[in-house]
């Protein structure tokens, strides 16, 4: 049973919409156009992302493979971030979007702690163009575009049509056909969040990845630079 939500889970409920995304990893080429589109759509500042594409190399030469894993908010049907938010700044829309009210957010980061997918971030306060800062932000499935009949910016720009968006409750939609006909995977289904981003053919090494020190020199350098940039801390203390 879902508690603390402003709208009940709508997956499979007749007469209700359930917006969802399929990411067909057979088609992802790691071009990062989705990341750029998202940055452009929302003026997302440096250092934080609404969507990312994780990259992982597996195997040893000559038997190697590079895996791409686009990640974003899963707009869960039972989102833990929503029920844990003390001010209802983050809320569930009846069509399935999990959205954020900036004017209510106190940036206590409970939602960041609650999210199993690391899909949330805190916007820096010193932004030049946009005045919204010091609050938690996340992917919105571009609900402002969807309400006007468009698809999200990342879907619009995806070169290989790897990202497909639509109403999963509509049996005639492309996304319902894909989820119905293909073997799909969601991230961390055991958490009971009912995530609504479905992956076709992901690699186990990148869906199951938890804490692991980066192996390559480049990845270690990236990690060091990231944490040093955030005042040498792996925690938010002193960053805000």
């Amino acid at each position: 049973m879902a508690i603390g939500l402003q709208a009940e889970p709508s997956l499979g409920v007749p007469g209700k919409k359930r917006w969802a995304m399929v990411i067909d990893l057979r088609r992802c080429i790691g071009c990062m156009a989705c990341v750029c589109a998202d940055k452009a759509e929302y003026d997302v500042p440096l250092g934080v992302w609404r969507t990312i594409v994780k990259v992982k190399d597996t195997g040893a030469y000559p038997n190697t493979r590079r895996h791409f894993m686009p990640r974003l908010c899963n707009h869960c049907d039972n989102p833990p971030c929503v029920r844990n938010c003390p001010t209802e700044a983050t809320y569930k829309h009846e069509d399935g979007f999990v959205l954020q009210r900036y004017e209510r957010c106190i940036a206590c980061r409970t939602c960041v702690a609650a999210c199993p997918y690391n899909a949330r971030h805190v916007l820096p306060t010193n932004r030049s163009n946009v005045k919204i800062g010091g609050v938690v932000d996340k992917c919105t499935f571009c609900n402002h575009r969807v309400e006007k009949g468009l698809v999200p910016a990342c879907v619009q720009t995806c070169l290989g049509r790897s990202r497909i968006f639509g109403d999963l409750n509509d049996p005639a939609s492309e996304i319902a056909r894909l989820v119905g006909r293909h073997k799909t995977v969601v991230l961390k289904p055991e958490k009971g969040t009912a995530p609504q981003v479905y992956y076709i053919k992901p690699d186990r090494s990148i869906t199951e990845q938890i804490f692991a020190a980066p192996e390559s020199y480049a990845a270690r350098s990236d990690a060091d630079a990231f944490f040093n940039h955030n005042r040498g801390s792996r925690f938010f203390g002193g960053v805000l």
Binding site: V53, V55, D57, S216, D222, F235, F236
Partner: peptide, 14 residues
């Protein structure tokens, strides 16, 4: 190239 694209700061500190 790289193994990871993003590092996350833990939300709650000292």
């Amino acid at each position: 190239m790289f193994e990871y694209m993003q590092f996350n700061i833990s939300p709650w500190g000292w």
